[in-house]
Design a protein around this nucleic acid. Structure first.
Length: 287
DNA sequence: CTCAGCTCCTGCGGGC
DNA sequence: TGCCCGCAGGAGCTGA
């Protein structure tokens, strides 16, 4: 579920607890998530100071003062919970005591100033790894990821070139992280709806002008969702310290059988399965 | 290279 | 109430 906007919201939410702070102890409550942790991961994190938190695609990058970075992926069910951050002057403040350790709390970062950051992931599709900061671009998980959709490298000419000749449905192409970074099932559905493009349309058969519209709707959809996430941080709605899962109104995702939101459309949102994933769309608005 | 299908994992909801 | 099944899905992997 966490796609680019949710990961970005988590990154922003973690910053007050982690940036500039030392990791007094990294508590690994199991030896692996999707893959085994580096065998010496706890030792390499202990005593390191967090320089800054960055995001690349759906990955959170924790730059440490030792020239290494911790790579974190939330997978599908991964979440971060902050506790014990007693800093009323910090936006997104959380002041409460540490809760009891729960099932699926796999990694706990004990920060030197008392905050605790807990990574909980029932399905364990998440991942963590350590990598030299100046070699991150060569890391196997990051090396082949396409441009950031909110960055300068993502525009109509680029996307048109990458989609040219492709026979795969546009839905699958946009989920391909090598083409564009950070999109998942939800925001692909939403962006295609806004662009008026049917999810089953062959990627290589979309007009130049519609591809330009699509790049715009991808950006707008993501920016709106990030804004909604930022609001949830500001509004203290994440009162339990859990970051990244916020209320957001989707236009088609999860709305099978409901009325299309386009005024006077009158159609009903449909769901189809493409390569094993649900796609939601309006048969009238999307062609 | 491209593309479809399988796989990992657990929680949840529907059907009976 | 309890059991079984299907589904959710990011992304690496395999095989055609």
């Amino acid at each position: 579920m966490p796609e680019l906007p949710e990961v970005e919201t988590v990154r922003r939410g973690l910053a007050p607890a982690m940036e500039g702070q030392m990791i007094a102890r990294a508590e690994l409550r199991r030896a692996d998530l999707r893959w085994p942790f580096p065998p010496d991961m706890a030792a390499r994190l202990t005593g390191a100071r967090v320089v800054q938190l960055r995001r690349r695609s759906k990955y959170i990058l924790v730059d440490l003062d030792r020239g290494e970075s911790l790579i974190i992926h939330l997978g599908m069910s991964g979440r971060m919970v902050i506790s014990g951050l007693n800093a009323p002057h910090v936006p997104g403040q959380f002041h409460f005591d540490h809760p009891a350790v729960e099932k699926h709390d796999h990694v706990i970062f004990h920060m030197a100033q008392g905050a605790r950051v807990t990574f909980n992931d029932p399905r364990r599709f998440g991942a963590m790894d350590l990598c030299a900061t100046d070699k991150l671009n060569d890391h196997p998980l990051l090396a082949s990821i396409g441009p950031e959709p909110l960055g300068n490298g993502f525009h109509a000419d680029y996307l048109g070139a990458r989609l040219a000749g492709r026979k795969t449905p546009i839905k699958a192409a946009l989920l391909d992280q090598r083409i564009v970074a950070g999109l998942g099932n939800i925001y692909v559905c939403e962006a295609l709806f806004r662009a008026g493009i049917h999810p089953g349309r062959m990627a290589g058969r979309i007009s130049v002008s519609r591809i330009a519209t699509l790049t715009d709707t991808i950006r707008a959809t993501l920016l709106e969702a990030i804004e909604a996430g930022g609001s949830s941080l500001r509004d203290y709605r994440q009162a339990n310290g859990e970051l990244g899962y916020f209320q957001h109104a989707f236009r088609v995702y999860g709305r099978e059988g409901a009325a299309c939101v386009t005024p006077d459309c009158g159609q009903t949102v449909r769901r189809i399965v493409q390569s094993g994933r649900s796609s939601f769309y309006c048969p009238s608005c999307q062609r």
